[in-house]
């Protein structure tokens, strides 16, 4: 069976032909060859006639092929039975959709750049998807190929240029065409996902005030970065967090005031690179601290109740 194209745009026409050289088929020579068609299990009418070189040919046109996949069978009648003599698999779909919502994150443990995107509508056709990247003044290369139909993959460090802008985009290709996502122009470091700091100690300093001194350590993977951090805290009764912003990461200590006495607070901290306002780290593990009690103020009223 010969088809115009095994892959066609959905809804377009499909043409096919089935050629029988009866003298090659034992038992068919004398009888009048009768060719019929079936699309999967559905009989379809073709136009049969004599073909070149003592052959019988049946031509078929499906004006609007609306299935994403089907088998076109060619049958011949032989000894009162119907015989399958040929088949063509036809697939139909669309050119790839334009991938969108491309975003990337740099993992600081292995400096791999993981990107994810939305694939867009299904094209119904085998589609190859790759993430392309191009350093400034360097040719585009395949950064990575998503596995298992996923819409994410990781560009290894050796293909990245740190501290310099790169172009990154998704390219999807099938038989009917190619589609590219928007091109991201990013410095991988600007999308670094930092590891959270670790809160070390919390103390009431200076003593007998409503202030606390808090110390922390930045993650080793961020040690070389200038960091901007923020602290949040609340009591178990609070629903909202109080937020302290613009803390210098490498200071390692900060002082906050205005705390209630004899009250338990829950503290967390997070950081990001101050150079590029990239992603915040996750919040650190929380730490609880109960502020010290304070001697009541004011004049002590003393009284003594007696019963006559």
């Amino acid at each position: 069976v010969a088809v115009g194209s095994p892959i066609v745009p959905l809804g377009s026409a499909v043409t096919a032909s089935c050629t029988i050289q009866s003298k090659l088929c034992r038992g068919l020579e004398q009888e009048k060859v009768r060719i019929t068609w079936m699309l999967d299990n559905e009989p379809i009418a073709g136009q049969q006639g004599q073909g070149p070189g003592d052959t019988e040919v049946s031509n078929l046109t499906l004006p609007q092929f609306n299935r994403t996949q089907a088998k076109l069978w060619c049958w011949v009648e032989w000894n009162g039975t119907k015989q399958r003599v040929g088949m063509a698999e036809i697939r139909a779909g669309y050119p790839p959709s334009k991938p969108f919502n491309l975003s990337c994150t740099l993992n600081l443990s292995d400096y791999g750049l993981t990107c994810q995107w939305e694939p867009g509508a299904d094209s119904h056709l085998p589609t190859s998807v790759v993430l392309k990247c191009a350093g400034s003044r360097a040719p585009a290369v395949t950064g990575c190929t998503p596995q298992g139909g996923r819409s994410r993959c990781t560009v290894p460090r050796r293909l990245l240029q740190l501290y310099r802008h790169m172009e990154i985009w998704v390219s999807a290709t099938n038989t009917l065409g190619t589609a590219e996502s928007e091109h991201l122009c990013i410095d991988p470091m600007d999308v670094a996902k930092l590891d959270p700091p670790a809160l070390q100690s919390i103390q009431s300093i200076p003593f007998q005030t409503d202030c606390i001194a808090l110390t922390w350590e930045v993650a080793r993977s961020n040690a070389h970065m200038e960091l901007q951090c923020e602290l949040r805290y609340r009591t178990p009764a609070d629903t909202a967090w109080a937020l302290v912003t613009n803390i210098i990461g490498h200071a390692g200590t900060t002082q906050c005031c205005g705390f209630l006495f004899g009250t338990q607070y829950h503290f967390q901290m997070r950081c990001r690179r101050s150079l590029a306002q990239g992603y915040w780290s996750e919040w650190s593990l929380g730490r609880n601290y109960t502020t010290h009690e304070k001697a009541p103020t004011g004049k002590l009223d003393a009284w003594w109740s007696t019963r006559p």
Partner: peptide, 15 residues
Amino acid sequence: TFLKNNLEFTRKIKG
């Protein structure tokens, strides 16, 4: 920005 970025990069390499 180039200088600040590559100061950070040099610190990383030194580490």
